[in-house]
Design a protein around this nucleic acid. Sequence first.
DNA 1: GCCAATTCATACTAATTTAATATGTTATCC
DNA 2: GGATAACATATTAAATTAGTATGAATTGGC
Lengths: 136, 136
Amino acid sequence: MNISTKTEYAVRALSELALNSADKPISINDICKNRNLPVKYVEQLFRKLKQNGLIKSIRGAKGGYQLALKVNNISLKDIMEAVDENYVAPFCNGKPENNVHCIGLPCGFKELWDEIKKHMEKYFDSIKLDQIVARL
Amino acid sequence: MNISTKTEYAVRALSELALNSADKPISINDICKNRNLPVKYVEQLFRKLKQNGLIKSIRGAKGGYQLALKVNNISLKDIMEAVDENYVAPFCNGKPENNVHCIGLPCGFKELWDEIKKHMEKYFDSIKLDQIVARL
DNA sequence: GCCAATTCATACTAATTTAATATGTTATCC
DNA sequence: GGATAACATATTAAATTAGTATGAATTGGC
């Protein structure tokens, strides 16, 4: 139960976008230079963020990335979901193959983990990028 | 960001204690037989749970474990904290050696992670063992 | 048209963490 | 004194995560 490096890097990089890409796109290279992040790793994260519609890209020289949505419309949940897909993944997901510990027993744990998951998603969804950036 | 196996196992095993150890202690062997958990692994978890004052033990034959506190006085947070110490551990903890990404920059991220951590702790602390057991 | 800058894509390696096992000691009941 | 069970530590195995390497496709500017 912790914030993954993926999430942390994504938040850092997206903050850079939020602050500096309003008029012209900013390249991963510049972002990583500014924020001291590993270029190739961030590239991977950005591909996922793009697939999830959080950012848009311009290819070729002078290209780079910009936010695809308003800063107040991108939540920490969106970021985590994009970059770290099962960011809330309890062990028992109710599927028999993952539930070897409850053989022959009624398993009341799935419900619990589901509830926790729902709570967390709601909470992370309430934290928006603009609030994050406002504090920097 | 997920519920670790450690936490899951601990909750399962403690549920067994909550249900079946009121009058006489129950051994790890029995718990693990009932709940299909790896004995030696659970032993390790129980040592930590004991160190943290959540359970008490009776050594020797006919020995075993019992809860050291009321079921409504043991929270999911207590369990996680005991068994999975940094169960909420964001990457940037404000210490310089973990904060290489903010060299020369004011780092506003620590605050954010701290706030998240506080929220989670409060939430997990609100979930007590009796509520968990009541659902099984 | 070509070169540099840049995104896009995949494969691979390294490091770290987590899960699980192995071995053995100590205490206690019968 | 033997069986049972907690206690303790070390080791191995598996899985995940972080990071690197390589290279193709796209585009702007000279």
